[in-house]
Design a protein around this nucleic acid. Structure first.
Ligand code: FES
Ligand code: FES
Lengths: 156, 156
DNA sequence: CTTATATAGGACTATTTTAGTACTATATAA
DNA sequence: TTATATAGTACTAAAATAGTCCTATATAAG
């Protein structure tokens, strides 16, 4: 169904929570209480996010996690990548040389194109957007085409 | 990793093959030969595509499958939906009432927003694009924001 | 210096999803 | 009537994901 994993979903919930007080330290146990997600799971997610430098961590008593950057400087594409690894819609595009028909494949280039479009859409949404209430009703996504051939447009 | 299933990947390969001769009937066995994908798998994919009215089918001797519409009238979003079901990035957005914290969830609306952006990007790529060689180098995806608040832009 | 607290890292198990196969029924052309 | 090809469904195997747990390390406070 083209979905993100549950862990990624948790990650956005957790990050949204933290983004409300971006400057304070949040311990895993606090986040469990606030979000209702089980502690071991919260802990796992926080480790991923910390490793990807989306969060900073402080060990020891009174330690915890905080945002590494401002809310509008972290986007959804980064969060997905932190939890699930590089975004690529097909096996062929993430791991080169895996596919048998790679040499004669017509469509690989087109999947790369689609990947980029999806990635750009995800990149455009930041934590700051997630924190804001949903006033938005729709988003325009434009894939420009050349007038003459109606093919997907070349960007110089 | 936010990827489509292998079956969906096969589906694009198969459809791309069929789209080269959109008016002829293609039997599953022919497609196996042309694409190198195992017959039972090809068969499974073709059934999904036929059920979703992306392909028309003809039983019996000299039967087979053909495109139900012109190549530029079938897009990638439809293909993904045919194989994997409705596109929705989180469980919460595809199946209502599953999530415990649904009532108090801040971010559900934002995921819906992201879903729509991704869907629109996928919708913009058709079979005709897949058949064409990759001259394209990049695709612009624009998520407009209001000038004043820099929030994702409302579309009337 | 010791203790309580909190993250780091990795290993492991259970669950769920996906992929792949097989079999029976039905339609159609020759 | 027969050969051929799809329709539908059920089943098995494999892979990915989710969730848990344990040990090590860092830090603040007494
Ligand atoms: S490279 Fe794998 S199907 Fe194209
Ligand atoms: S509705 Fe499930 S996390 Fe928001």
């Amino acid at each position: 169904m083209l979905r993100v994993s549950k862990l990624t979903d948790y990650a956005t919930v957790i990050l949204t929570h933290i983004a409300h007080q971006p400057d304070e330290l949040h311990a895993a146990s606090d986040i469990t209480q606030a979000t209702g997600v089980a502690l071991p799971t919260v802990s796992k997610v926080l480790k991923f996010l910390s490793k990807a430098n989306i969060l900073t961590s402080h060990r020891g008593s009174k330690g915890g996690y905080a945002l590494a950057n401002k809310p509008n400087e972290t986007n959804v594409a980064e969060v997905i990548t932190a939890i699930e690894g590089p975004i690529g819609m097909t096996e062929c595009t993430t791991s080169e040389g895996t596919c048998e028909q790679e040499s004669s494949c017509e469509i690989k280039g087109n999947w790369n194109l689609i990947n980029r479009a999806v990635y750009t859409a995800l990149e455009a949404v930041t934590l700051a957007d997630m924190v804001a209430p949903v006033r938005q009703q729709a988003v325009n996504v434009v894939m420009p085409r050349t007038k003459e051939t109606n093919e997907l447009k070349v960007e110089s």
